[in-house]
Amino acid sequence: MLELYHWEPNIYYLKPLIALKEVRAPFTSRYFDPTSFEQYSPSFPQNTESGLHLEREGPVLVDGVTVLSSSFFILEYIAEAFPAANLLPGDAYEHYRARAWGQFAALQLSPGVCALGCAKYLAPTLKSRDPGQLKARIERIEPQERRAAWAAVIDGSYSEQALAAVRDRLAAPVKRFEDALGQTAWLAGPAYSVADIDAFAMLSPLPDVAPEVVSEKATPRILQFLHRMRERPAVRQALALAKTARPQEAFVPGAEPSRWG
């Protein structure tokens, strides 16, 4: 039996939930709260990759003794383990396109989405915690990139100027999604694929956290895409797994932006 360690159905956590519902795979839900740092407890499944993975707090899928991390590659794993659902449809070129979109979203979209979401929702939540305890807990996090990302949320690194720059940098990648959705019905081509699940999870917070960039007026095709996705039974089922009233406010520090500027 597959076990999925996840939080609320939002950002990285939403992706494998949708895919598992699409393929109708039975799985055991292991719900955890990353803001309580449960993912660092000794009982949480771990391996080299889950410690180093670049999405940091994201979901992990446990299949037997194997601990799988990195959300797009979990999607591909589910697609390949359950081929009947055809989540990687078409020919080799469509597969290439799906993978290229997964990479593009991970590098160009996710860091900004997580930064904006953390600034708006996670930072205020953490302010209500005991600052001394929180600081002490964060100081024990390894590796240092992961520790620094949490420290950035509590130390007020999110100035208005920095957030405006994050929104500015999202404009070009968002335009690529908007343009692509004008050319084919789904991102990888004529058929629905893991690329759509992946993009949906990261695009859907944007009308809230970056309304200047994603809106009915600025990006009508993305809005239609989000609407089409929310009509899918698997997406509805995944979203219904929320345990709080506002799952769309569940953010964790995600992948870092490129260090090249």
């Binding site: 180093l52 670049l54 590659f73 591909e76 794993y77």
Partner: peptide, 20 residues
Amino acid sequence: PKERWRMRWWMRFFDSYFAP
């Protein structure tokens, strides 16, 4: 499939962390 996943995981680690 597990080896495929590991192949992809490490390629991302190479591409996005180590190589840059």
